[in-house]
Computed example of a mutant assay.
Amino acid sequence: MKVLISTVPFGSVPNHDPLGLLEAARVRYQLNPFGRRLTEPELVELIHDVSILIAGTEPITTEVMEAAPQLRLIARVGIGLDSVDLEAARMRGIAVTYTPEAPAPAVAELTVGLMLDLLRSISRADRLMHSKHWRRFLGRRLDGLTVGVLGVGRVGKRVIRILRGGFPNVRILANDIQPDFSFGEELGIEWVEKNKLYANSDIVTLHLPLTQITNRLITEREIGMMKPSAFIINTSRGGIVDESALATALTSGCLAGAAIDVFDREPYSGVLTDIEPCILTCHMGSMSEDCRAAMETEALEDVLRFVRGDPLKQPVPEVEYTVSKR
């Protein structure tokens, strides 16, 4: 039985040795030889004799699975499942697991950090200082503003708790297809329709899976509803925001700024790299030492359960298969 570890990085957290667990179980493994996100053709070339894939965000398509007749488990390191053709996996008897809770704390903290960066121009000041230019930016405080949270699941709830704990005067507007009203009552959330959220928020932050419903959710139309002074943050999935429409809004002054951690195509080198008020990070929401270690450990635990013939702990639930068909 051979394991391909396509996700990168893997096993790089200090004092954390997931590869040692595989070695102790006498499981053969191969690391991603490219040290970056694989393309579909690259994965096809690597997967032909693989039984278990420890996966990142690379495309795991029907073509990939057809090239892997021995594949029986896809252990996704992370929460997003838009890169996995779940129905194709089910048809081939391939089990799929994921680690939905592990990344959430790091993603939520990065999101709030990006809010402060946008409001106070921290990144812009840093870049200018490194170019030996002194410029003091006049910004706004987060406390007292209105934050619109689109998607109130694992990450969205953590963002709201951080805001409530540190910035008690923030007004929080929220939208979710299944509102948790008891959570909303506890945290003082106003549940609103999306259009009202766009129009009234100083910051719109996205915490949604990428599905057929959420693909291109934020286009020129939605951006046009937002205040010219507003900011948008996406730490969820590329594809939810129309990057071309965002670039146009930022360059024309229809939107004050944005912070984008996820992109349609990664690694990213598109038009947003030329736009100053757009903070760009390289899909690093989950990249804190503790959360990354937890993600790798949880994925690996299910791999070892599979090898032993034990029940899987974190199989992808049926609702995710249903959502993927929409």
Score class of each variant (00 low, 15 high):
79 I>M: 12
214 T>Y: 05
250 L>Q: 00
191 W>N: 01
110 L>D: 00
93 G>M: 09
130 H>N: 08
184 G>H: 10
153 G>M: 07
132 K>N: 15
153 G>Q: 05
210 L>P: 12
92 R>V: 03
97 T>R: 01
254 C>G: 14
24 A>K: 12
45 E>F: 04
40 E>K: 06
27 V>W: 03
291 C>E: 09
184 G>E: 03
29 Y>N: 03
81 L>P: 01
111 T>H: 01
29 Y>E: 02
59 P>Y: 06
195 N>E: 15
227 K>R: 15
198 Y>H: 03
267 P>H: 09
144 G>F: 11
286 S>I: 00
17 D>W: 05
300 L>G: 07
134 W>H: 10
91 M>L: 14
326 R>N: 13
266 E>R: 10
249 A>L: 05
285 G>S: 03
255 L>F: 02
91 M>D: 13
305 R>F: 07
179 P>C: 02
289 E>Q: 14
159 V>L: 10
160 I>G: 03
257 G>V: 03
113 G>F: 01
256 A>V: 04
67 A>W: 06
105 P>I: 12
29 Y>A: 08
117 D>A: 11
260 I>Y: 09
96 V>S: 01
7 T>F: 07
135 R>A: 08
293 A>I: 02
303 V>K: 07
17 D>T: 11
281 T>L: 11
134 W>K: 11
200 N>E: 15
62 T>Q: 15
202 D>I: 09
213 I>T: 08
200 N>C: 11
84 V>H: 05
318 E>V: 12
168 P>D: 08
4 L>H: 01
30 Q>G: 12
302 D>G: 07
157 K>D: 07
68 A>Y: 00
182 S>T: 12
171 R>V: 13
102 A>I: 03
308 R>D: 14
86 L>F: 07
71 L>N: 11
112 V>K: 12
102 A>M: 08
235 T>G: 04
187 L>D: 13
108 A>N: 10
178 Q>S: 12
144 G>P: 07
169 N>Y: 13
13 V>G: 04
36 R>H: 03
